[in-house]
Structures are given as structure tokens and as C-alpha cells.
């Protein structure tokens, strides 16, 4: 598995797209910092980017890589290698190279700017951790989708749909249910609904760390009380890990049964 991981990883970091992705983050980070001069505001803007773009790129990249390397995968399948190592290796190769681009691309400008001397370092680390989780989650989802669909067009559309659902439609449903049940106590429900969607969970985790959380008022206080404790942090990291683990397990299960 490690060999395949290594192969996919090197294959990917030599590809043009990884560089484009890396350059994009480098540029974004430096522009934000050197034009804005305010670390805390830069973290907010980055949050907006990360919770939208990272999942999108994760899904698209994952699906694309799977379909592109299909012939090579079939070649590998003819060899005496465990199926799970082939697919998990490929998945990890994609996810890790994307994560590396993200961490390097954002990390370098921030370190150059003097992050270690500032108080924002924990906010920034949280940003990178959620970014990493989102990459792992959405790449895994993408692999799942690709495994289930032989048809490329179908696969791509499902992938985009999943992203669209998580990033936009889910919040719309969430909003509508909050309005529909506004005469009931909604605290527990809204905490639950936030935990279920990794994009929402990442957004809230970062928002609560920033000054802007004061705007959230009473609801924010309820959230702060839940997520501010060790238990809340444990639960949120747990849910994010679960979001990684379940799709990966499904890749493992599916690839063993799949008929190529």
C-alpha cells in the first residue's frame, strides 16, 4: 500500500494541478497578508475560502484522479497486490498531496509574515486542521462516488452535487427548519445539525475562535458553551474523524467486491 501511496503521491506532486493549487494558496495567503496587514481579518477571509474551496477541489480532484488513472489501476489489479492497498493507497496519495499544497501554500506566507510571534497562531492552526479534515473527507467521498459510477459524466455530476449539497443546500434546509420550528427550543437541534455537516462544523469551530463570535449573541453563547469545553472539542474532532473513517471503510468494502 505504501508503495502505491508513494507512487500516486509523487505522480501527483509532479502534476501541473498540484502546482496550480499550491500557487493559488501561496498567492492568496501573501495577498491577504501584505495588502491587509491584519492577521485576524486574513484568518476570517481564509476561512471563507477554505470552507468553500477546499471541499470543492477535494471532490473534483478525487473524481478526476480516479477516472484518469483507471487504466493504470486495471494494470495494477492484474498484479498480485491486495485490492484495498491499491485504492486506499491512491486515495491517500491524492488526499495527502492536496493537504500538503494547502498547508505549504498557506503556511509559507504566514510564517514569513511572522505568525509565530502573534496570538493568532492557534486560530491559524485550527484553520489548517479543519482544512486537512475537509480535504480528507471530500476526497474520500469523491472516491466513493467514482467507485460506484463507471460513467464519468455521472460521476462528476454526483460529485458536484454532493459538494453543492454540503456547502449550500444543507444550510438552506437548516435555515428553513429553524424558521419552521422557531417556537420550539432549537439549541440542541442546531448543535446537532451543525455537527452532522463537516463544512458547517468547520465554519462554527473557526468562527467561535474569532472576535466576530460576539455577534452570534445568545445562540453563540450556547455554542461556545458546547464547543468551548474539552468534551465539545472531542466530539467535534470525533465527528470529523468519523466523516473520514466511514467513507474510507466503504472504499475498502466496495473495492473488494467490485467487478472490474
Amino acid at each position: 500500500m505504501l508503495k502505491i501511496l508513494k507512487y500516486s503521491f509523487y505522480d501527483l506532486i509532479r502534476s501541473r494541478w498540484s502546482y496550480v493549487y499550491l500557487l493559488f494558496y501561496l498567492l492568496l495567503g501573501s495577498v491577504l497578508l501584505f495588502l491587509n496587514n491584519d492577521l485576524s481579518k486574513a484568518v476570517i477571509t481564509l476561512m471563507n475560502v477554505i470552507i468553500i474551496l477546499v471541499p470543492l477541489i477535494g471532490t473534483i480532484f478525487g473524481v478526476m484522479y480516479y477516472y484518469n488513472s483507471k487504466e493504470f489501476t486495471e494494470l495494477l489489479l492484474a498484479q498480485p497486490i491486495k485490492r484495498s492497498s491499491i485504492f486506499i493507497g491512491q486515495y491517500l496519495g491524492v488526499a495527502l498531496s492536496l493537504t500538503m499544497s494547502l498547508i505549504l501554500g498557506l503556511g509559507i506566507p504566514f510564517v514569513l509574515y511572522g505568525l509565530f510571534q502573534s496570538n493568532e497562531i492557534w486560530d491559524f492552526i485550527l484553520l489548517l486542521v479543519t482544512g486537512t479534515f475537509l480535504t480528507l473527507i471530500f476526497t474520500a467521498l469523491a472516491f466513493n462516488i467514482a467507485l460506484y459510477n463507471e460513467n464519468k459524466i455521472k460521476g462528476f455530476s454526483y460529485a458536484i452535487l454532493v459538494w453543492l449539497f454540503m456547502a449550500v443546500i444543507y444550510d438552506g434546509l437548516f435555515l428553513m427548519s429553524l424558521i419552521a420550528f422557531q417556537s420550539y427550543p432549537l439549541d440542541a437541534f442546531s448543535i446537532g445539525a451543525t455537527l452532522v455537516n463537516p463544512i458547517d462544523l468547520s465554519r462554527i469551530l473557526i468562527l467561535l475562535k474569532l472576535d466576530i463570535s460576539a455577534l452570534l449573541g445568545y445562540t453563540g453563547a450556547v455554542f461556545q458553551k458546547f464547543f468551548g469545553t474539552n468534551f465539545g472539542l472531542f466530539i467535534s474532532i470525533g465527528t470529523l474523524s468519523l466523516w473520514v473513517l466511514l467513507p474510507v471503510l466503504n472504499i475498502y468494502r466496495k473495492c473488494r467486491k467490485k467487478d472490474f
Binding site: 476570517i44 476561512m47 471563507n48 470552507i51 468553500i52 456547502a167 449550500v168 443546500i169 444550510d171 438552506g172 437548516f174 435555515l175 429553524l178 424558521i179 422557531q182 432549537l186 439549541d187 442546531s190 451543525t194 458547517d200 465554519r203 462554527i204 468562527l207 466576530i212 455577534l215 452570534l216 449573541g217 445568545y218 445562540t219 453563540g220 455554542f223
Partner: peptide
């Protein structure tokens, strides 16, 4: 306006959906 009607919805602040509406 929505937040005034249902204060709990404030937790959707800075979500892409909110920007769209």
C-alpha cells in the same frame, strides 16, 4: 431580517447559502 425573526439562525453567518440569498 431573518436573524431578527429567528435569532438562532445567526449560526449560519458567513455560510455560502446566506451570501446567495
Amino acid at each position: 431580517y431573518i436573524v431578527n425573526k429567528t435569532p438562532e439562525t445567526i449560526i449560519l453567518m458567513r455560510s455560502l447559502f446566506i451570501d446567495i440569498i
